[in-house]
Design a protein around this nucleic acid. Structure first.
Lengths: 231, 231
DNA sequence: CTTGACGGGTGTACAGCGTACACCTAGAGT
DNA sequence: ACTCTAGGTGTACGCTGTACACCCGTCAAG
């Protein structure tokens, strides 16, 4: 939709001369619009008015492309204000990552499947460890803390319980079947009922995210104060 | 390898008459042996000495197949001993899941990509919530606790930091490049050095897993004791 | 005993994927 | 003027999931 025929006028093909960053930006736009599975080399090429193989002059492979997509977004994660309290700094970074993830829903899948650690990715991790040690955590504790945070540092909690409370989105709920499920899984039903009572609007993912994040940050602080070490 | 030519003798084709469970078991075996990406309908069919489309008489689609694969394994997660302490019960379930995951490395990817919640899956979640409320947690707290545990209830922590400390597996470490990385990311280098000093054998994933698990379980106990609620 | 339904394996076909390889062409450097 | 090369093109291969028509053996009802 955007970015078309900038040069002279007519010729239906390649507007600007194509470049790695243009390819990556187009891929991100396409993924934003239609999901990561819509990003095929052929489709992306079409979007750029170019033949599929042309892309390979700018990215080494599809894997390289998605790595570059991740990198592009991670590169401008926000940086917390200078002199923030360490837990506040971590919160800011993690919630910044989360904000990016909400903008680019495909990012989660991409990160889960990624294998390469680009400089931007390493930089993010480095900064988080930096926050931890600035807060008085040992490198030892910081290491385990990073593991504990897990994918949360990329802004998402693994949604083990996803759409279990809110499973009844579009398809017909069918009260009879629902009752049967409730009988078979009474505790899940209990959770759903209590959730329904307290938060009829449904499960607030942001709340869940911060709940666990803060649980972990408090635990880290406690371990730090008690001089915990792993050996 | 197993299960061949049970009827009369010779004919090189379909030994037993094929069935959903035989298909699923073969798929699991194939995934165990060569990874989930090796499980294509064509390949699996070949493994069963059958034409690809024959499988569709027993599974609705590839997605249905992998769901069934997950279900088959989750179905025989171990059950903790009757009367266990609640945190011990949860630990047992979660570590049982983890054991299954180590046996079937593809399971992680499969679960991450799964969308259907089968009865076995719901049963596992139901049992965990049951443990929490048996331990005196409210349904409210249990709900958030399940979110906090996240994929850990399936036996894996999201490995955000994976192979960062142990990145130097097969490829040449190249000390010059390594030094440059260390300069660019001093905190990561710090973690790596400290880890190297304390645990030269490398990062013990099981330790990391239990570290976070116990952190969370302690936090839940504390919240329970303080009468925490979410409203 | 015949007949008709039907469960389950077969064969062909299609659209889509990533990408290897050979080719061509426009512009820059000597 | 001549070559070199970066970058876009075209064709082709092997792979994927699966729709659709077919066909055959078993078994129940007439």
């Amino acid at each position: 939709m955007t970015e078309q025929s900038r040069p002279p006028a007519g010729s239906r093909a390649a507007a600007s001369p194509l470049s790695r960053s243009r390819v990556v930006r187009a891929a991100i736009a396409l993924a934003d619009a239609e999901g990561l599975e819509a990003v095929s080399m052929r489709r992306l090429a079409a979007e750029l008015c170019v033949v599929p193989m042309a892309l390979y002059k700018h990215v080494a492979s599809k894997g390289d492309l998605v790595t570059a997509m991740i990198d592009a977004i991670v590169s401008d994660y926000p940086t917390p204000a200078e002199g923030s309290e360490w837990t506040a700094a971590i919160r800011a970074r993690v919630l910044g990552a989360r904000a990016a993830l909400l903008e680019h829903p495909w990012l989660r899948t991409a990160i889960e499947g990624a294998t390469e650690r680009t400089p931007a990715v390493l930089g993010h991790m480095n900064a988080l460890v930096g926050d931890l040690v600035a807060g008085g955590c040992s490198y030892d504790l910081a290491h385990h803390a990073m593991h504990a945070l897990g994918h949360r540092i990329w802004g998402f909690s693994p949604e083990a319980f996803a759409s279990s409370g809110a499973a009844a989105t579009s398809p017909a709920p069918d009260p009879q079947l629902l009752a049967q499920i409730a009988r078979a899984f009474p505790h899940i039903a209990g959770v759903a009922a209590e959730q329904q009572r307290r938060h009829p609007a449904g499960c607030d993912e942001r709340f869940e995210f911060e709940f666990t994040l803060d649980l972990l940050l408090e635990s880290f602080a406690r371990l730090r104060d008690s001089g915990w070490q792993s050996s």
